[in-house]
């Protein structure tokens, strides 16, 4: 889960950073000639720079291999269910509130007034995906609902004094065993 990953990376690196600062602070009181130390520090810095570059570049490239914008191309042959979602102060209008578990859904998200944010939360209130809902533009968000049950739509962009009350629900149901048009 990306949230977990983000948290772990952040905590780990912050601890490392804290240790480095503590080490420097604890070794600051003694005095050493600066010139030789500076030379060593500059050499080390080059190493530090390249380490960062070597660590970040693969992460950067790898993290871009599957962007949420391209979700549509990820399920060839599985025609997504399309749901229109329009945000208003302060409610959502969805063209359907029911989706099928495992079948991709494409939300066509826009707004009838001002900027909102269309965020989908699973049964554990974990954010599984979002896009902005803005006037004059349609943002297409593709998601696959994995679990049966009720998902929630929350507003993710501040839109005035009832922003926190802008809720909608989406029911994810198991696929019907009867062969549907999908299988043709």
């Amino acid at each position: 889960m990306y949230q977990q990953l983000a948290w772990q990376i952040t905590v780990a690196l912050t601890v490392v950073l804290g240790l480095v600062f503590a080490f420097i602070a604890l070794n600051a009181g003694k005095w050493t000639e600066y010139a030789p130390l500076q030379m060593r520090a500059y050499r080390l810095r080059t190493g530090f720079f390249w380490t960062l570059v070597l660590l970040l570049t693969p992460v950067l490239v790898y993290s871009m291999s599957e962007l949420p914008y391209d979700a549509a191309h990820r399920h060839p042959g599985n025609k997504p269910q399309v749901i229109d979602a329009v945000g208003y102060q302060w409610y959502w209008i969805l063209s359907s509130n029911e989706v099928t578990v495992g079948r991709p859904v494409e939300f066509h998200v826009t707004s009838g007034d001002i900027n909102h944010g269309f965020g989908i939360y699973d049964q554990d209130m974990r954010l599984v995906g979002q896009t902005q809902a803005m006037p004059d533009y349609v943002n297409k968000l593709q998601l696959v609902f994995r679990k049966e049950g009720t998902y929630k739509v929350l507003c993710m962009e501040y839109c005035g004094i009832a922003h926190h009350n802008m809720l909608a629900e989406i029911r994810a149901v198991a696929p019907t065993p009867v062969p549907s048009e999908d299988n043709k």
Binding site: Y2, Q3, L5, A6, S63, E66, L67, P68, G117, G119, R126, L127, V128, G129, Q130, M156, E157
Partner: peptide, 8 residues
Amino acid sequence: VINHVMHN
């Protein structure tokens, strides 16, 4: 990909 589930 992280922003997708952590933005705002």
